[in-house]
Simulated assay, not measured.
Amino acid sequence: MTHARPFSDSAETKAAARARRAQRWAWLTGVSLLVCGVIAIWQEPALAPEVHDGLQGLVTLAQGVIDGNETVRAMLTRLDGGVDLAKDAGLDPVTALLLRAQN
């Protein structure tokens, strides 16, 4: 008795599946590198002063969203131990979250 191989296991299908996995990993790697670069610039403004200044504006925008949205505020409260605690310390929530992640 002979068994026929299913056509779905062809080399082309396997190569296409590998290509899709490689594209997903490449996308994830690219996003991770971008996030690491932005965090490095946030930590050391001398790396790219213009980008750091832009991040300051982004922090102001994020603070406005956090202050205006109770759902986001509750999520950050669960994440970093309290946005109000960060405000009392004179820090914006993003910096407080980064400092908490560092410790």
Rank of each mutant, 00 (worst) to 15 (best):
M1A: 09
H3I: 12
A4C: 05
P6K: 13
S8G: 03
D9W: 08
S10L: 10
E12I: 10
E12A: 15
E12F: 06
T13K: 04
K14Q: 14
A15W: 06
A19C: 08
R20D: 08
R20G: 02
R20A: 11
A22E: 05
A22S: 06
R24G: 09
A26T: 00
W27N: 05
W27F: 09
L28Q: 10
L28W: 03
L33E: 13
L33H: 03
V35Y: 07
V35L: 15
C36M: 07
C36E: 05
G37T: 09
A40C: 09
I41P: 02
W42I: 12
Q43R: 14
Q43D: 14
E44N: 11
E44A: 12
E44V: 13
E44L: 13
A46V: 10
L47Y: 12
A48Q: 02
A48V: 01
E50Y: 05
E50D: 11
H52N: 14
H52C: 11
H52L: 07
D53N: 08
Q56L: 14
L58V: 13
L58Y: 09
L58M: 13
Q63E: 10
V65H: 07
I66W: 04
I66E: 10
G68C: 10
G68P: 03
N69D: 15
N69Q: 12
E70L: 07
T71Y: 06
T71E: 11
V72C: 00
R73C: 05
A74P: 05
M75F: 11
L76T: 01
T77G: 10
L79V: 08
G82T: 02
V83E: 10
D84Y: 00
L85E: 09
A86H: 11
K87V: 14
D88C: 04
G90Q: 01
L91M: 13
L91N: 07
L91T: 04
L91V: 03
D92G: 01
L97S: 03
L99R: 07
R100H: 10
R100N: 09
A101V: 08
Q102W: 10
